[in-house]
């Protein structure tokens, strides 16, 4: 499944980040904590420490709390796209954060990670992130390239 391949390739990419929270599986990422940490590394002027502090990182046994985190992350990314990049993702199916929080759904997580990737390849330090991708295995690079191209066709 292509969507799941995107998810697992982007998890491989996310593993290059020095994050405090575990980030090696869809289950690890389903509470949004590691993803929020990644965003605050990628674009610290936008995903600030006060923003990160609003992401709940303890007692996340109730999946609804995970979804609350994921909604804040998705909202933040969409605001970044609009305010910083001046784009909206017309026609890109937004990730179903309920499916990620409740079932660690890899396909939906793949969509969310695709949006995180888009922040990384457009941020001020994009050179660092793109070069990291270029040093990864060819098949992972190819999937990431396809994921970027899909987003590029949906930007307006």
């Amino acid at each position: 499944n292509e969507r799941e391949q995107i998810c697992y390739s982007l998890i491989t990419w996310l593993e290059t980040f020095p994050l405090q929270s575990p980030h090696s599986s869809p289950s690890d990422l389903s509470d949004g904590v590691a993803i929020a940490q990644a965003l605050s590394l990628i674009a610290p002027n936008f995903f600030t420490q006060p923003w990160l502090a609003k992401i709940k990182s303890e007692d996340l046994s109730n999946w609804r709390l995970k979804v609350t985190n994921l909604k804040k992350i998705l909202k933040g990314i969409l605001e970044y796209n609009l305010e910083y990049l001046g784009v909206t993702m017309q026609g890109f199916q937004m990730p179903d954060v309920n499916a990620i929080g409740e079932h660690s759904d890899a396909q939906e997580l793949g969509r969310l990670l695709q949006l995180v990737l888009n922040v990384a390849i457009n941020c001020d330090n994009k050179q660092e992130y793109i070069q990291t991708i270029m040093s990864m295995e060819e098949d992972v690079q190819q999937i990431i390239k396809n994921a970027i191209q899909e987003l590029m066709t949906k930007e307006a």
Binding site: C123, D124, K126, Q127, I130, M134, E138, Q141, K145, I148
Partner: peptide, 27 residues
């Protein structure tokens, strides 16, 4: 000599793609 041009190999095409991203203006 039948060798593929660098830009036509998978590696070359990937490098071209990511280099084109690098050359885009930040932000």
């Amino acid at each position: 000599d039948g060798k593929p041009q660098a830009g036509n190999t998978t590696e070359g095409m990937l490098a071209n793609f990511f280099n084109s991203l690098l050359s885009k203006t930040p932000g």
